[in-house]
Design a binder for these strands. Structure first.
Lengths: 195, 195
DNA sequence: TTTCAAATTAAACAAATGATTAAATCATTT
DNA sequence: AAATGATTTAATCATTTGTTTAATTTGAAA
């Protein structure tokens, strides 16, 4: 348990506040207070609020993608293993960071330019690998539809959590159970969908 | 084509900017400029930025819910018709207002208090009606899972559009085609999932 | 111990921002 | 035409906000 460096304290506080409230609503003074550091240190280490923000977004986007990209691209992992690993890892990750997908997807919509740099030249999905494995499994679905169905069924519950809670469809206390149970069914659903 | 009243011009401009950029990033002077009115009129008609914002959120939330709620609650509409109508209506609506779901879901996460008032006492989902129809169709799925699957498969493509576009999985020009084709398969998918 | 760069602090600056005021204009009624 | 209330305008206010500055402290090297 090394004590955090000043830089780490700032990143930690900024990550928390930016993901909770978005870029514009988060004030540099808040970040400084949350981090327990002097306001000027924020600019000393990161130059500006925007540069700090980009740092945070890069981290968070990577958290979200690394669960999926390497697994999907790996030819030695079967389609079933892929789906089950991704379902498992995402549910795990998102239960610990519920705000992650909505933060990233909203920022990606509102602040598109920012993501151009980050995702440039990143081969996010290994289309040929997945295409081959879909055929091997007798699935006639297209790669985009396969990815869309997979991510939908795993992630949407987290994105739309407030709707589920407010409507009384799912109680706050049983939400974790709800997504854990769904996680177990993903592979079954995916195979059924694609016959 | 009546010319818009000042109030309508403000609401229109505010709707556009708030949904595009969120509450904090939207400045009252921008709204005034976009609406072509004097800044003071915003407070004259709506009292404050926050009250104007609540007005916009209420409208947008209702746009999103009215596609779904009345249809789902109607006992005289079969489950198949329900699913197909909702798939059709949502795809239509969201193609015209792509920013709508991510705006509402993000605001609902970031600004939860605001939605307490709006959704209080609103029986969003008619659980018993759907439960009955699921049984009649031999579907053993729970209502929350049914709703989650339905909304996931329809809406997630819009929420995650930037991911699909940036990854090259779907081209911007073919996005409308992509979601239109998916829309046609929703009922098939839903039935297969629940055997 | 002295030196010196790195790290930290308090204070201040300039611009932006939500809101208000008081005067001017408009439209409707008398 | 005069009167009256509703609408609109330009100007201003008080804070907030991101950033900078200049001085101080810290800690390691000489």
């Amino acid at each position: 348990m090394e004590p955090l460096t000043t830089e780490q304290k700032i990143i930690k506080a900024a990550s928390k506040l930016f993901t909770q409230k978005g870029y514009a609503a988060t004030k540099t003074r808040e970040i400084a207070e949350e981090a327990g550091i002097n306001l000027a240190l924020l600019n000393y280490y990161f130059g500006s609020k925007e540069r700090l923000y980009k740092e945070v977004v890069k981290n968070k986007l990577w958290m979200l993608l690394e669960v999926m990209i390497p697994v999907l691209s790996d030819e030695t992992v079967s389609l079933k293993e892929k789906v089950e690993t991704i379902a498992e890892n995402y549910t795990q990750l998102l239960l610990e960071h519920e705000e992650l997908p909505i933060f990233i997807l909203n920022e990606w919509t509102v602040n598109e330019d920012l993501f151009v740099d980050i995702t440039r030249d990143a081969r996010l999905f290994a289309k040929p690998v997945i295409e081959k494995q879909l055929k091997e499994n007798g699935m006639e679905v297209s790669v985009p539809d396969f990815i869309a169905n997979l991510l939908s069924l795993i992630m949407f519950s987290f994105v739309a959590k407030p709707l589920f809670i407010s409507s009384g469809l799912v109680e706050e206390e049983e939400f974790a159970d709800f997504v854990m149970r769904r996680k177990e069914k993903i592979w079954e659903w995916i195979t059924k969908i694609n016959q």
